[in-house]
């Protein structure tokens, strides 16, 4: 699967409170409503800036902090197609795969705000169309590819009536 869009650049240690604040997430399961507040504390206008298919690009430790799954869900509903970061906090990483948000772990130092990117999820290749720089991501563990291919963990469990992590 090949994704194309613009980079929205953030720094290191973007925590889940910044992705979606606790003051909103406890109130509703309406992710479209939560999506309006994504990244609000870092960039109040973020939701309005995003064109469908755009990427969040960040530094180290993206998604640190709480276990809230509203974080990847709200990102998906804000029309972001994938998050690209130098590293991810582990709970966020699992939650993203479980909910079907592609996450790409790659050195992002050569990506600036506004760059046009092409991401090949199959090969892990990220091409910066603005600068011509190509970088290749760390591959996902096999188990996560299985879950992602089944459309997330809930469909994986429904389809196999439990975990089916090996053939």
């Amino acid at each position: 699967m090949i994704l194309r869009g613009k980079a929205h650049r953030f720094g290191d240690d973007v925590n889940t409170d910044y992705i979606i604040s606790g003051k909103y997430k406890f109130k509703t399961l309406d992710m479209k409503e939560l999506a309006k507040h994504v990244m609000e504390d870092l960039d109040p206008d973020f939701y309005n800036k995003v064109e469908p298919g755009d990427f969040i690009v960040a530094g180290r430790n993206f998604g640190c902090g709480s276990s809230r799954e509203q974080a990847p869900l709200a990102i998906i509903h804000a029309n972001i197609s994938a998050v690209i970061a130098s590293s991810f906090a582990r709970i966020f990483y699992r939650n993203a795969i479980n909910t079907g948000l592609p996450v790409v772990e790659v050195d992002t130092s050569a990506i600036s705000d506004g760059d046009e990117l092409e991401v090949n999820l199959g090969t892990g290749k990220v091409t910066n169309l603005t600068t011509g720089v190509e970088i290749t991501a760390k591959p996902l563990p096999e188990v996560m590819i299985r879950i992602l291919n089944d459309g997330g963990l809930a469909s994986h469990i429904r389809k196999h009536k439990g975990f089916a992590l090996e053939d």
Binding site: R68, E69, I91, N95, N98, L153, I157, F163
Partner: peptide, 20 residues
């Protein structure tokens, strides 16, 4: 360890969870 909601649901359903 802390997990998200879907992992919790999978553990409630199966009594198991995968870990690295």
């Amino acid at each position: 360890t802390g997990v998200g909601s879907t992992d919790l649901a999978a553990a409630m359903a199966t009594g198991k969870l995968w870990f690295k």
